[in-house]
Write a protein that binds this DNA or RNA. Structure first.
Length: 598
RNA sequence: GGUCCGGUAGCUCAGUUGGAUAGAGCAUCAGCCUUCUAAGCUGAGGGUCAUUGGUUCGAAUCCAAUCCGGAUCACCA
């Protein structure tokens, strides 16, 4: 039980004993006491005034007296200022609860809750490499999955690969036209970039052909429809759906190039999946669900044989779920996939990490799933995140303003290298150790940058200024971890060392910064719970930063090695050790490693 | 036009179910390395919380209207 929970429980008991009516913890609010006032936690008294018909001060005095008298081991004193009851928690209680928490939480001993959650993220297209927006998706999905794990869920990470459709055919056509048999190997190009280049070439050629046709007197619409390269692409899509062997072989070959490239990127950024779905397989499930929907009268058929659902009663529109030629559309594939996911894993919750541009689509998906009465339809959840934009607006591939994932990772590692060399603190590292360190710092900076913002909000990335390594950043936190580790090495404290016992004489009187650190450390489990409830890694990012910042102030103002007494030194070593553990654990939840030295 | 999301310091962002004098980082300015790693610490300046009205002991937070910005409303995925 956390300090706040304990306080709430005590206050409920005291109020009930004092006033003879039933109270719950919802009848009053508990906040952390603002630094300018004395105390650790504050009960806001205003909400009790009406039901008790007493002044805030009168309630506060009675409650404060009763709390201190009945829980002497928990509260030492109180004060009341303008309707706020500020309570001071006993020093010994901090030691006690921290020592318990030190064993429970820091080393991942969370009990499983028996629930299974699936997190789908990444969802790449196989016609172009990953960009900055994908990175936000990947980091978010991975982190949310880890936060679920830390909260006791069994987690299945999945990826749906969008490996079919007209856009894939564009790359294929362009390769046939312009490559002369070139391959990633022959050109020494990463597979996904290689294929992406042909996607770009397609668009260039298409644009050229359209302009030629317009010059020849066609309208824009006609030109766009009649451009030979577009016609060839549409024919290829039909051939693909018909399973024409040479088209299938080319498709297979080019997709494998892309997968090879993706795997390198995923490996670099630390994304991994327990299960990968391919749209080329799941789209076939569409037809079956449509038939079932027709039988249940959830869907209806138009005269031209196309199949629809009417969602106007739910405030949405009519949506097509199957074309008149019998082929399935986007939404139908997703329904099949949702069913498939459940059938295979019997999941309790299904999370989709997808950009907010698809809010409408996901709303429709969930609604249809519910109307079809698919198992667990109500537990489908769209974890919607905002787009990553440039200061000039959205990233546009046509204008060449897309920030490539591989490029940005490499750039961050380079910045980490420059900075590290400049500081010259790890000159004894081997080349391999240095490479690993640059990767840890560079990728850490990038991940922290993308995860520290509330997922729901769109965010702005300025490629002109590289990501900062100072202040509210990954490297700052990593730096503080390395600093602590340096001290712990010196005094041979390992992370398992037990905390100062509560009987020790050291427990009387903490410095403000010592207390601040303890209060913050104690909150870690609550922060994980909150991050899990909200599916929001930024709660972790903000928390871990605050811990690191508090430690940094502490470190500068007070010496650990030369503490006033041996007991103080032991206490500070323990606090430092726990801080390092919490930093490491919290950063891990965001997929960020912390170095021992930097 | 319908629906949804957003607007907090020059910039990027926090701000718990309404609570005390709205907070960080970057940038700017002034200090701090003989002492556990200065990727650091301390301090200063910087705000009409888009606007207006309402709800109440109390509103950045809840409600309504307005203004501005974005997303979406395909037999594309």
């Amino acid at each position: 039980m956390s300090v706040v929970e304990k306080l709430q429980k005590s206050a409920v008991e005291s109020l009930t004993a004092l006033f003879g009516q039933a109270f719950t913890e919802k009848d009053f609010q508990v906040n952390q006491t603002k630094p300018k006032f004395e105390g650790d936690y504050t009960i806001v008294l205003f909400s009790l005034v009406k039901s008790l018909k007493l002044s805030p001060d009168a309630i506060g005095t009675k409650l404060g007296d009763h709390l201190v008298a009945s829980n002497p081991s928990l509260f030492t004193k109180y004060n009341i200022i303008k309707g706020f009851l500020n309570l001071t928690i006993a020093d010994a209680y901090w030691i006690e609860i921290l020592s318990k928490y030190h064993n429970d939480v820091c080393f991942g001993k969370q009990a499983m809750n028996g629930q299974k959650v699936m997190v789908e993220y990444s969802s790449p297209n196989t016609n172009k490499p990953l960009h900055l927006g994908h990175l936000r998706n990947n980091f978010l999905g991975w982190s949310v999955a880890e936060i679920f794990k830390a909260s006791g869920y069994e987690v299945i990470k999945t990826c749906i690969v969008n490996d079919r459709g007209i856009h894939i055919c564009k790359s294929m056509i362009a390769w046939q036209m312009f490559a002369n048999g070139a391959t990633p190997e022959s050109t020494n190009t990463k597979g996904d970039h290689f294929v992406g280049d042909y996607y770009v070439k397609f668009n260039e050629e298409y644009k050229k052909q359209v302009e030629e046709l317009i010059t020849a007197g066609k309208t824009k619409d006609e030109a766009e429809k009649e451009a030979p390269i577009m016609k060839a692409t549409q024919q290829m899509l039909l051939d693909w759906e018909a399973g024409k062997p040479d088209v299938m072989a080319l498709w297979d070959k080019m997709n494998n190039w892309v997968y090879k490239g993706f795997n390198i990127t995923y490996n670099t950024i630390g994304s991994d999946f327990d299960k990968t779905y391919y749209e080329s397989k799941t789209y076939l499930l569409g037809k079956k669900t449509v038939e079932q929907g027709l039988q249940k009268n959830v869907f209806y058929k138009e005269a031209d044989n196309s199949v629809w659902i009417d969602l106007t009663a739910d405030g949405l529109d009519k949506k097509i779920v199957q074309r008149k030629d019998g082929t399935s559309v986007y939404i139908t594939q997703d329904i099949g996939l949702a069913l498939d996911k459940y059938n295979e894993y019997k999941i309790d919750r299904s999370i989709y990490v997808i950009g907010d541009e698809q809010n409408y689509h996901m709303k429709v998906l969930k609604l249809i799933a519910e109307k079809l009465q698919l198992p667990n339809a109500e537990n489908i959840y769209h974890l919607s995140y905002g787009m990553v934009e440039l200061p000039t607006g959205k990233m546009k591939s046509r204008e060449g303003t897309v920030v490539d994932a591989d490029d940005i990772v490499e750039e961050m590692e380079k910045v980490a290298q420059d900075k590290t060399e400049e500081l010259g603190k790890v000159k004894d590292f081997t080349a391999a150790e240095l490479t690993a360190l640059y990767h840890t710092i560079g990728l850490g900076a990038l991940k922290f940058f993308l995860l520290r913002v509330d997922p729901k909000k769109k965010m702005i990335f300025n490629p002109e200024e590289s990501i900062d390594f100072h202040g509210f950043t990954g490297p700052f936190i990593q730096f503080n971890h390395a600093r602590i580790k340096s001290i712990l090495r010196k005094f041979e404290v390992n992370s398992q060392s037990s905390i100062v016992s509560s009987e020790s004489s050291v427990v009387s009187g903490f410095l403000p910064l010592e207390k601040e650190l303890m209060v913050a450390l104690e909150q870690y489990p609550n922060v994980i719970r909150q991050a899990c409830d909200e599916m929001n890694p930024s709660a972790i990012a903000i928390y871990v930063y605050n811990i690191a910042k508090t430690f940094s102030s502490f470190y500068t103002e007070h010496s650990i090695a030369n503490a006033e007494t041996e007991e103080k030194k032991q206490l500070r070593l323990q606090l430092a050790s726990m801080t390092a553990n919490v930093i490491k654990s919290g950063m891990h939840l965001m997929g960020i490693d912390v170095p021992e030295r930097m």
